[in-house]
Each structure stands twice: as structure tokens, then as C-alpha cells.
Design a protein around this nucleic acid. Structure first.
Lengths: 218, 218
DNA sequence: ATTTCATTCAATAGATTGATTGATTGATGT
DNA sequence: ACATCAATCAATCAATCTATTGAATGAAAT
């Protein structure tokens, strides 16, 4: 009576949760949702999905309890759910990097050409010393919703023609959405090619926020 | 060129990993594999699956990099993979407990009837004081492969008729395979009904081992 | 009240996954 | 070489999942 039936039910429940993360598009949606609240339309655009398709994936994520929603006028805003969702996604990424050679290569690829990463701890230290320039290479809208304290915002594709805005002589730390966002790595490559000293932040904005560190909004 | 294609590929890879955990039977197999090396036949029996079915699930887990194998004579032994698999499973369980009311209830159900859980930290403290009896309620074979230092082994279904072996006067901490293994909760209920002071270990043997704490083998 | 817009629902077809069956492989002992 | 045993493979059918389409909500604006 207490036996295996109950265990079966429990494992089936947990499996449902795992399956909710078991699709590339949903993981991408999660990654974007992790940046902050986003409308369905926006998320569909960011993930390159049709509206209806994005909506369905998002609803599945909501049923699984990975995201939550709120209505704002005629839009529905999705956000990460309350529970320990970010740690779960992080654990998943960690194992993926550890196991799959191809994921590791692809991630390493964005670190190639001498693009070293800086850890949160080291960055905090450097921020305390005021010896570093923070560069947020995400689009303005994302920057406006929250960014690291004191960061400059120059979206990736504008960086080349706005290089002059960056003060010389200090190291620059670029960051982006997350470990799989290539913008920051590209930015670092570009900066180095132009004589700057630059590194990328190991993780990205969502991990920073998830760690409970200070965030500034426009 | 660096764009969304690469991200799509990465997320698809990671999703594959998540999907590997997306089936109740596979989670159950993982739970048993987490106890130590097991043959396919044994795992099939433990999970209540046909041999071929278990074999296929296990192979899928291996392809996903969640388990590894080794040949021993004519048997193939499965074990957890090297990477951070246990933390991922733990994160998954945590979120499941947090989100799904039914999982929480089912887990709570095994704690009902005043069955309180003791944390690893508290248990370590009590072990240092020598003020506690450890009771491993798993089957002998599992006990033989590794158990908490100094633990007694009385499999769940034998407990009732072997109560006399337990010294009175000291609190008993029962443990089992993991948080969803009901044997330890049942054991605690039985012990209390017979006048013992008893609690169950919050997690189970695999978590103990995963935490790097001392383990003893027969 | 009607229009507009963002989102969701419903239905469909194609692809993937899961359990079962029986055959096959690979290692061991006679 | 042969028989035996554990595990895997191959083929099948049912069940589930995914993307697309077009229709239906439901909240604001005119």
C-alpha cells in the first residue's frame, strides 16, 4: 500500500518537470525569461519562434512550475517561477558542459582567441577597487530592466563604431545574458583587437542576479 | 555565423540531457544506480521493469552521460557517471518538492505520524557524541556495498520480528536509499509504536555518500 | 458597441518515444 | 565445440510530442 506505487507516482511527477526542460526551444525561452519579465511576443521574437508556438511552450513551462505569469494590460508577462529554478538550470548546464564534448567545445569556442573569463568573486574585488569598466553588451531594453551597478551599455552590434566612448587604460569586463550568449565573447575579441584590455564575465546577468548581488535599473 | 544556430545546437544538446531524466522509470533506475554498481538484471528487478525495457532505458541514460558501465564477466554493471550528476538530481528533487503540491504531500506523507527527520549536520553531531543508534533498513546486499559507519542492518520487512536486537534507551536514526524511499519512514513508525525513540535521516545513503562523508563497506 | 491587439485554444499531420516480443551477441564453463 | 547465461538489438504498434494553421478569447482604445 505504501509500496512502489507511490514511488512510481513521485518519480513520474519529477520526470514531468525534467521533461519540461527537455526541448531546446524551451531552454532558450527559459534563458530569456531569466533576464526578467518578458511578453510572449518578445520571447517569441528572441527565441525565433512563431507566436503560437512560443505561447504553447511557455504554457507548458508554466504548468511545470518553471515560470510564472502576470497580466499587464493586454499583455501577459512571463517570469521565472519562485522556486529554485535557476540552480536547477545551472546544474543542468554544468553537467552538460562536463559531459558533452560538443557543448564544451561550443562554449570554449566563445572563449577562444584568448578570451579569458573573470569570476564573480574577482569582479566584485575589482569593483571595490574601482579598477574596472563594466560593459553591458545587451540591447538597451534589457539593460533598462536591470544591470550591474555602474555598467555602461553598448549593444554588441554598435560596439565597433562606439569604441571611442570607452575610457582607455582600465580593464573592461563585458557581460551579456548568460554563459551561452556569444555577444560578450565577440565584444571582448573586438576590444582586444583594438588595443583594450578586456575579459568577459564568467556567467551573465541572470546568474549575477540569482546570486543576490546588487542590481541597478534605469 | 556565430549567431542563433550555435545557440540552438547548444540548447538542443542540453535538452537531450534533460529529456534523459524525463521518465519516471529512468529516474527510478538512476536512484538505484546511485546506491552503487548494479547489474542490469538487478536494476530491472528493483525498478519492476522487464529486462529488455530496463536495458534500453539504461542505455539511453548512458548515451546521455548520466551513467557509466563496466563489464564484469558476463554481467554489465551500471554506475553513476563521473560528472556532477548527483547535484543535478538533487536540484531536480528540490524544485519538485517546492513546486508540486502532490510531491510535497507524498514526501510529507512519509514523514507523517510524527515521523520527524534529522539533518546530516545534527546526525554527525550525535554520532560524535555516540548518542545514537544507526539503523540501515535496506536489503543486506545494498548494505554490504556501503553504509554509514557503525550502522546496524535490519531490512525493513524483518524489523518487526528483530526488534529485540535493538538496544533500548538510545535514540535510533533509520535511513534508506533516498528521500523517496518509504522504508525508513515505515521503520520509524514501527519503532515508535514499540516504544523506541526514533527519527529518519532526512536524505538517504546516496546523498550521504555524495556529500563525501565517511562510508563503511562490509 | 466596435475595433484592435496580445494571447490562447483547437485541430491536424508528422515525428519521436515507449513497451513488448523474439532473435542475436559475447563471455563463461563443461 | 557446445550449452548457458546476461545483456543487447531489431521490429513492431500504441501513445505522446511538436509545429502549423486558423479560430476564439479577453482586455484596452476609439
Amino acid at each position: 500500500m505504501t509500496g512502489p506505487d507511490i514511488q512510481n507516482r513521485i518519480f513520474a511527477e519529477i520526470a514531468e518537470l525534467a521533461r519540461a526542460m527537455g526541448h531546446g526551444h524551451r531552454l532558450m525561452l527559459l534563458e530569456h525569461v531569466a533576464q526578467g519579465e518578458r511578453s510572449v511576443e518578445r520571447l517569441a521574437e528572441l527565441a525565433g519562434l512563431s507566436l503560437a508556438n512560443a505561447s504553447q511552450h511557455l504554457q507548458l513551462l508554466r504548468r511545470a512550475g518553471l515560470v510564472g505569469t502576470r497580466r499587464d494590460g493586454k499583455r501577459v508577462l512571463y517570469r521565472l517561477a519562485d522556486g529554485p529554478v535557476a540552480p536547477l538550470l545551472a546544474a543542468l548546464r554544468h553537467l552538460a558542459e562536463h559531459n558533452r564534448a560538443d557543448v564544451r567545445e561550443l562554449v570554449a569556442g566563445s572563449r577562444q582567441a584568448g578570451v579569458e573569463a573573470i569570476s564573480r568573486e574577482e569582479l566584485l574585488e575589482r569593483m571595490r577597487e574601482n579598477s574596472v569598466i563594466l560593459l553591458d553588451v545587451r540591447p538597451q531594453e534589457e539593460f533598462a530592466l536591470g544591470h550591474l551597478p555602474g555598467a555602461l551599455n553598448i549593444p554588441g552590434r554598435e560596439l565597433e563604431r562606439r569604441l571611442a566612448e570607452l575610457p582607455a587604460g582600465q580593464e573592461i569586463v563585458a557581460y551579456c545574458r548568460g554563459p551561452y550568449c556569444v555577444f560578450s565573447a565577440e565584444a571582448v575579441a573586438l576590444l582586444r583587437a583594438n588595443g583594450f584590455e578586456a575579459r568577459k564575465l564568467e556567467a551573465g546577468f541572470p546568474d549575477w542576479k540569482a546570486a543576490g548581488l546588487a542590481v541597478e535599473a534605469a
